[in-house]
Design a protein around this nucleic acid. Structure first.
Lengths: 208, 208
DNA sequence: GCATCAATCGCTCAAAGGGGGTATTTTACT
DNA sequence: AGTAAAATACCCCCTTTGAGCGATTGATGC
């Protein structure tokens, strides 16, 4: 079917897991796994010079973390696909990994057959993730609740674009005094005392 | 295996697709699909009173859009799982859907067998999405490039917490003059003229 | 019918912010 | 060795902002 195998590298400190994964993957039709590293430093040194398509990356490594390795590797090889394969399922690990350029995020309870499917998915431009991970990511988009009125939201959006009292007032055909009142109400609803904090909170809560 | 079927409702204006889907799903072991609606209004009116676990929602509907329907439905039934099933694969459709509370996002080229698997996934707390959709979402986390130095980033983060010149200066053991200089440099690098806009841009570009 | 809230407009004043400069030292890259 | 960038510190001047006040009108809800 495929003329070329997908070339995979593994970065994983646990000897047993690393060896098992290597054997399973390399033994499967269409997949080749000739490189495995027990730490980030050695992976960083070698992978950029190897013909590798996809990296399976653990997060909890001795020395530099898998997230840091991912960041550095993506800087050197932007087209390399890196799948995090880890037990860490906390939000921080997930979001940091995605921010530094991971293309997928799987938990270690993924069974070997699925793992191969997911590697293929990444290779084809997809982004496999364990269902719990996907739910975390999706939930991060949810709007909790919006205490601001429409007018207030409108004003806040303009502030975020850098407009001042007067400019906002002109834009929405209001007196600058009214704009000021709206802003004061915004601050009070968001429990902040200035513009910078208001915009920060508003964005974090997806209000603007 | 399972004592209870998963109860599904469909919102889809195309008669053929709606009927085909209904038949396929309702004919499958462990799945029940007794409700199907050709528009958002009728779905809104009925679904809150029906024993439904999962809704398959089209986006392009006559009258209110599937996204609007999702928003309203989730307000009334926060625990209802809604999977968008649509041809729309633009970023706006995807992100708006997730923001209003969709639990999954599948493209209409998903084959029926996979669809059933994905319905089960949602029912079990997962968030199925087509691989292209997943890649879009994951890419939205990527940092494009960061023109700010570490110090500048540190200062900007403090500004976003509502601190002023003096407070930042005390926090990082610097002269307020220096803090001001950093801030001026931040403005210049981000091409903005004030704090509000700086924080807005910085967050949008994932710099803080 | 009464309360609540959004939306509107107004005032004063001290504090903070932003634009324009200049300049030294340290670090980093080549 | 030389240049560039980052980090540090300081000056003047004017604008903007936020706090603390008060007030009216029109919806919306109970």
């Amino acid at each position: 079917m495929s003329l070329e195998s997908i070339h995979i590298a593994i970065v994983e400190d646990d000897n047993e897991i690393r060896q098992t994964l290597t054997l399973i993957i390399d033994g499967s039709q269409g997949f080749s796994c000739k490189y495995a590293f027990p730490d980030g430093e050695s992976a960083m040194a070698s992978i950029p010079n190897l013909p590798v398509d996809v990296v399976l990356m653990d997060i909890d490594l001795p020395g530099m973390s898998g997230i840091e390795v991912t960041k550095q590797l993506k800087k050197k090889c932007p087209d390399l696909d890196i799948i995090m394969l880890t037990v860490q399922s906390d939000d921080d690990s997930i979001f940091e990994s995605l921010c530094v350029g991971a293309s997928g995020y799987l938990l270690k309870d993924t069974n070997p057959a699925d793992l191969l499917v997911h590697i293929k998915e990444v290779f084809d431009g997809g982004s496999p993730m364990s269902s719990q991970v996907a739910r975390r990511i999706i939930n991060s988009f949810r709007i909790i609740d919006n205490p601001l009125s429409e007018r207030e939201t409108e004003v806040l959006k303009m502030l975020s674009k850098g407009l001042n009292y007067k400019e906002v007032a002109e834009e929405v055909f209001l007196s600058p005094h009214t704009v000021k009142t709206h802003i004061k109400n915004i601050y009070s609803k968001l429990h902040v005392n200035n513009r910078a904090e208001a915009i920060y909170k508003a964005i974090k809560q997806k209000l603007i």
